[in-house]
Amino acid sequence: MPISATVPWRKRQSVIPGFGMTLGFTLAYLSLIALIPLAVLLFRAAGMGWHDFAALAGDKRTLSAVRLSFSTALLAALVNVVIGLPTAWVLARYDFPGRRVVDAIIDLPFALPTAVAGIALTSLYAPNGWLGAGFAALGVKIAYTPLGITLALIFIGLPFMVRTVQPVIADLEPDMEEAAATLGANRGQTFSLVLLPPLLPAILTGFALAFARGMGEYGSVIFIAGNLPYVSEIAPLLIVIRLEEFNYEAATAIAAIILGVSFASLLAINVLQAWSRRSLGHDS
């Protein structure tokens, strides 16, 4: 908006009507449904005082639940980089029979209610399930362990990764690759030295989105988790447990931690994208 630096915005009259009405409604609705309730949570967390908050957040069971949510979300997001990158590559670059169906099915974790995903994954990976039985024979227990939590978070996070990276791969201009090939680079060198650097911001964004989602995920996890305190109890579940005890303070403290971690990772994305726009000199 180059004009806005010189002309005050009020002076530029738009001929289009409805500014006051639509902006007023937008702000009122957003405040009532989202901002005021969220502010109540933040005020309540802030109103506890640092000492009480630290005591609640430092509770052993809370700490182990937060640590479990953090580590499983991190691991799942890493696995999603490994699975999501080739998936996005194949969908953006290759034509094969059924590509459109495969492309559509990527969004299944967005569309399938989390509780349904949860019971389906549990029945698959339970020790007597189709896949769980095979793993059990090898001595690996998936359902009712942190491994099962990670699996559910991989399921939930995959579309974030694919949908962030896929359009960037599709927009890559072939001239850089051609130049690299002309200069004698093989395909592997071209990928890691020429293609990977411009994809990196998108990969990190997908990673952060999947991680932030995994940190707060509830429905798909609680069925497969086992929910054993100190072992397989995730932070969102502990919020529910504290609420059932009418312990609003403890629930608020855990919620503030989850929100803080999610917001921090999303803030990191914005900083990263601003940085990559500056250093690569283009909008992507």
């Binding site: 940190m215 707060g216 969102p236 609003y248 989850i258 999610s262 999303l266």
Partner: peptide
């Protein structure tokens, strides 16, 4: 701010309304 609800855990989304309207809420 419009996108904010997407980055809030579903459980926290429920919790904020309990903190406003619940028995021990605002």
């Amino acid at each position: 701010l419009i996108d904010l609800p997407f980055s809030v855990s579903p459980v926290v989304a429920g919790l904020i309304f309990v903190l406003v309207f619940g028995a021990r809420g605002w």
